[in-house]
Measured scan of single mutants.
Amino acid sequence: MEVRTIKVFTTVDNINLHTQVVDMSMTYGQQFGPTYLDGADVTKIKPHNSHEGKTFYVLPNDDTLRVEAFEYYHTTDPSFLGRYMSALNHTKKWKYPQVNGLTSIKWADNNCYLATALLTLQQIELKFNPPALQDAYYRARAGEAANFCALILAYCNKTVGELGDVRETMSYLFQHANLDSCKRVLNVVCKTCGQQQTTLKGVEAVMYMGTLSYEQFKKGVQIPCTCGKQATKYLVQQESPFVMMSAPPAQYELKHGTFTCASEYTGNYQCGHYKHITSKETLYCIDGALLTKSSEYKGPITDVFYKENSYTTTIK
């Protein structure tokens, strides 16, 4: 009895394709271990004539594949690729409408935090270190965002349907971005203890939790000093293409032309909904596939993004 075979390709990165001759009487799992086709788990399936010449994702289970996976995804987590594939199996079914010149995501599976993050990423200057993220990001900007969303979920250790947080998501993504040249110098002034300067680099240099107003941050924000008295913390120097200011959701007025974009969060910790506000020729609110415009805006804002380049204080 002759062994019926077909020729397929296996890959971990969709760049390096490895030619395989597979036995049609055995499952993919018996031949390769966990195997995925377009995100779908085909591990328990036997090869079919229609699979001839198709590319299958496999887990990096030998040295060659491990090197290829690390170079593309910059992670050695053995569960990463499987999590990416199972997320992709959902995100490829989502709709990605162009809204006001940006790629958004039609609401499904509690994905409003991903839509808000995706919209924000198209408006701030950011370059990702893992080629996987950078490639998928370019495709997302062009309207094909399924891979990018699935990668975000995998890097953030999230599953489809789980509630997510924009600030946490951005923080994970910033860790995989090139923020080497970003720098922030802060000064804390206390009447009792004097003053202390701190220099922050990388992710810490672009994120701040405690106030939404970048102007206020430049002037000074009140913080408790270690001595128990009130101290003032203010920005001395900022070198970065953008800054992200966050605070627990509270009524906040966004003035046209003073910011790049913002995240609105309605609801409580267990259950809520994100919308995205962007400042173009007027203010726009993007909620999944829905767009509304207004000249002014007041609502429960939790993150505001500002364009920056270089700032030095005039406070002496």
Score class of each variant (00 low, 15 high):
Val3Tyr: 10
Thr5Trp: 12
Val8Ile: 12
Asp13Arg: 03
Asp13Lys: 00
Thr19Gly: 14
Val21Glu: 14
Asp23Asn: 14
Asp23Met: 11
Asp23Phe: 13
Thr27Phe: 12
Gln30Asp: 14
Pro34Thr: 13
Asp38Phe: 11
Gly39Ile: 07
Pro47Asp: 09
Ser50Asn: 11
Lys54Asp: 11
Val58Met: 08
Pro60Asn: 10
Pro60Val: 08
Asn61Leu: 12
Asp62Trp: 14
His74Leu: 11
Ser79Asn: 10
Leu81Arg: 05
Leu81Tyr: 14
Met85Trp: 10
Met85Glu: 04
Ser86Asp: 13
Ala87Thr: 04
Thr91Phe: 06
Lys93Gln: 14
Pro97Leu: 12
Pro97Thr: 09
Gly101Phe: 02
Lys106Pro: 07
Ala108Ser: 14
Cys112Ala: 13
Ala115Asp: 03
Thr116Leu: 02
Thr120Gly: 05
Leu121Arg: 04
Leu121Met: 09
Leu121Ala: 07
Gln122Phe: 02
Phe128Lys: 04
Pro131Arg: 09
Ala132Tyr: 02
Leu133Phe: 06
Gln134Ser: 11
Ala136Pro: 04
Ala136Phe: 08
Tyr137Gly: 03
Tyr138Ser: 14
Arg139Asn: 11
Arg141Ser: 10
Arg141Asp: 05
Ala142Leu: 12
Glu144Met: 10
Lys158Leu: 06
Arg167Ala: 02
Glu168Lys: 10
Leu173Glu: 03
Leu173Gly: 02
Phe174Leu: 11
Gln175Ser: 10
Asn178Glu: 13
Asn178Gln: 12
Ser181Cys: 12
Cys182Ala: 09
Arg184Val: 09
Leu186Arg: 08
Thr192Ala: 11
Gly194Ala: 06
Gln195Val: 15
Gln195Lys: 14
Gln196Asp: 07
Leu200Arg: 05
Val203Glu: 09
Ala205Asn: 01
Ala205Arg: 05
Met209Gly: 07
Tyr214Asp: 07
Pro224Met: 15
Thr226Trp: 09
Cys227His: 05
Tyr234Trp: 07
Tyr234Ala: 04
Leu235Pro: 04
Val236Trp: 10
Gln238Asn: 05
Ser240Phe: 03
Pro241Glu: 06
Met244His: 01
Met245Gly: 00
Ser246Cys: 02
Pro248Trp: 05
Pro249Glu: 08
Leu254Phe: 00
His256Asn: 15
His256Ile: 15
Thr260Phe: 01
Cys261His: 00
Glu264Gln: 07
Glu264Phe: 09
Gly267Val: 07
Gln270Leu: 10
Cys271Ser: 11
Gly272Cys: 02
Leu283Ala: 03
Tyr284Thr: 05
Ile286Thr: 00
Gly288Phe: 01
Leu291Thr: 12
Thr302Trp: 00
Thr302Gly: 02
Thr302Arg: 03
Val304Trp: 07
Val304Asp: 00
Phe305Gly: 03
Glu308Thr: 09
Thr313Phe: 14
Thr314Asn: 15
Lys316Tyr: 15
Lys316Glu: 15
